[in-house]
Design a protein around this nucleic acid. Structure first.
Lengths: 343, 343
DNA sequence: TTGTACGCGTTATCAA
DNA sequence: TTGATAACGCGTACAA
């Protein structure tokens, strides 16, 4: 019962051919007489032979596994993204090695080193801080690298990002239009790219409207539910609390709602809300969140395509793609979605 | 710049020792003079050497990567589980190779074959159908295997499952107690273990209450949002539609709500609801879903522990563990959570 | 049309 | 205290 795994040599022996022939049958890399090919195939079937990917990738210096390093899989948006990525990768015969960087640059470095050392067939990274080390390692190990959510003008890495500044500016301006003068921003730790982009949009809206910026109105914390809860708590405890909130990501949106609920306040009655990252169930529950919705499926597909192109031509110039998110105008901002205009 | 990856041989050369010595330094598997050890370490640092996992696992016949095959990562509950699993694995220095079986036994077979062929350090499987093939392959390749959501009396594989029959019975009985006589069950395709368990609980409650079972009241479909939508549509289109719904999983809950909303009906006013799988934001939105909540974090930890034990002692008898889910009594069943008793 | 034989980077066995 | 060297399973250049 407890046979060791079948090897190519065993298949070869059973089929009465050399291992080279077996290899060629498997990879369709040489014309063979139908007779031998048939013999080999039946031997493969009989022994339930499966090639050893370790040996393969040792030999080849790369593999069909794509590494994915994300700041937080628990974040519903990223979970969806990961799912879509898995699907898109599976469609081209690739597998996914998943690592969570916990939104921590140090953990990220470790994870990326680990992933790249595996001489993977690619790496998808949502970098927290400066990803120079990743770019260098990727080059060194010849691992195609695609950054998401980076949004930086650098010509030495492929990026596919979601436009954030304008989007956040737009929803913030909407709140201002509706008469809000003290708007809070619940966002992640500064220094992390996505956070900085979103905060920039928030500030931009204020500048354009000639509204003063109150530092107390944009506390920051970890991009987690707890972080969002804490930041929103701080905002609501202000002597002059905000009448509206902009949240920087999915997890923090939930945390903020928690803080609001805990005070017995309602949305949008007491506090209006607008958030980055959509929930796919958003229209089924009250309040229905007005949200900036990145196009996840598209994003994932583009990443896989990019990885493919980069793999084919490692020397092509770095590619940058920007995806424009949709804005889902619902009722948490205080509008009636049935009559409201698109933002 | 574009140096090839550093190999152990290069480190050995720079340090003026043999590869054997380098290997021993890395694995702490032999006492060496402090002097040589220091030389080796500095060579490793200077060349930024990282051992090649492919070579290692080729040599060792196993690796520190654990495969995870799930029916649908998009399912919020499983996404959380995957996340917790990643965390628990990372804590013991293991990585996660993720595959989505799309709730399809055929895809599952392919995925599991692929995963096991990699001579992984373990495999966590949520099987759709009969997992005999997986058990046999796992044994053959000496890959420790842990099944989740299987719930079957078989002594040839480790399982950690969430009790489902009693839990579903309980929430269904609650609906009956509240006066509902036509209760619909939205569940996955028959033949899939989790589905069958949950349907059994639904039936059991009816039997115990002496209520007749109407086959039209338990349509089934894919365990997806669309599947839930379709099944709920069918139920609500009935001449004598149900006044309450039990949903079999996370995704189908969302689909069912979609169907309800589309008809302008409300929960729990027009249709009461009770569902399997909790949402971590459930208390923040209306309706607040009364839900059966598996203890995800605990589940994930137990799986990793089990994997560890099995790895240490491959010959120990198969282990079975059953986790009891919590029932979160909220308002979608028609109760007032502030005064309601625990179920 | 097919086979031989080497090497990918490690680790473990043996020897020094 | 350390080194040579033979595997691990596969793909491919070279030969036949």
């Amino acid at each position: 019962m407890s046979d060791a795994p079948t090897t190519m040599a065993q298949v070869a022996r059973l089929a009465g051919v050399s291992t080279a022939t077996v290899s060629h049958v498997i990879n369709q890399t040489r014309k063979l007489s139908p007779a031998t090919e048939a013999r080999v195939r039946s031997a493969i079937a009989e022994l339930a032979y499966i090639p050893d990917p370790s040996a393969r990738s040792l030999r080849a210096g790369s593999s069909d596994v794509v590494g994915v390093a994300m700041p937080a899989i628990s974040n519903p948006y990223l979970a969806t993204f990961v799912h879509e990525l898995e699907e898109a990768l599976a469609a081209v015969g690739k597998s996914m090695l998943l690592a969570d960087t916990h939104d921590d640059p140090e953990v990220e470095v470790k994870a990326v080193r680990d992933l790249i050392a595996r001489r993977l067939g690619g790496l998808v990274l949502a970098p927290s801080g400066t990803p120079d080390y990743a770019i260098e390692l990727g080059r060194r190990y010849a691992v195609p690298l695609v950054m998401i959510d980076l949004m930086q003008e650098r010509d030495d890495c492929d990026q596919i990002v979601v436009e954030s500044v304008e989007a956040v500016e737009k929803v913030t301006a909407h709140l201002i239009d509706k008469g809000h003068r003290r708007i809070g921003m619940v966002s992640g730790l500064p220094g992390i790219r996505t956070t900085d982009q979103r905060t920039a949009g928030y500030r931009l809206a204020h500048e354009r409207a000639g509204l003063p910026l109150d530092a107390a109105l944009s506390p920051s914390g970890r991009s987690s539910r707890a972080g969002g809860r804490a930041a929103a708590d701080a905002l609501l405890d202000l002597a002059d609390p905000p009448t509206a909130l902009v949240t920087g990501n999915n997890a923090m949106t939930i945390g903020s709602l928690e803080a609001i609920k805990a005070r017995g306040l309602t949305v949008p009655g007491d506090v209006a809300m607008v958030c980055f990252d959509d929930f796919d169930w958003a229209e089924l529950f009250e309040p229905q969140l007005t949200a900036i919705a990145p196009q996840v499926t598209l994003h994932a597909r583009r990443v896989v395509e990019m990885l493919g192109r980069r793999t084919e031509d490692p020397s092509m110039p770095a590619q940058h793609e920007t995806l424009t998110p949709k804005i889902m105008h619902r009722n948490s901002c205080g509008c009636d979605p049935t009559t409201a205009v698109p933002l």
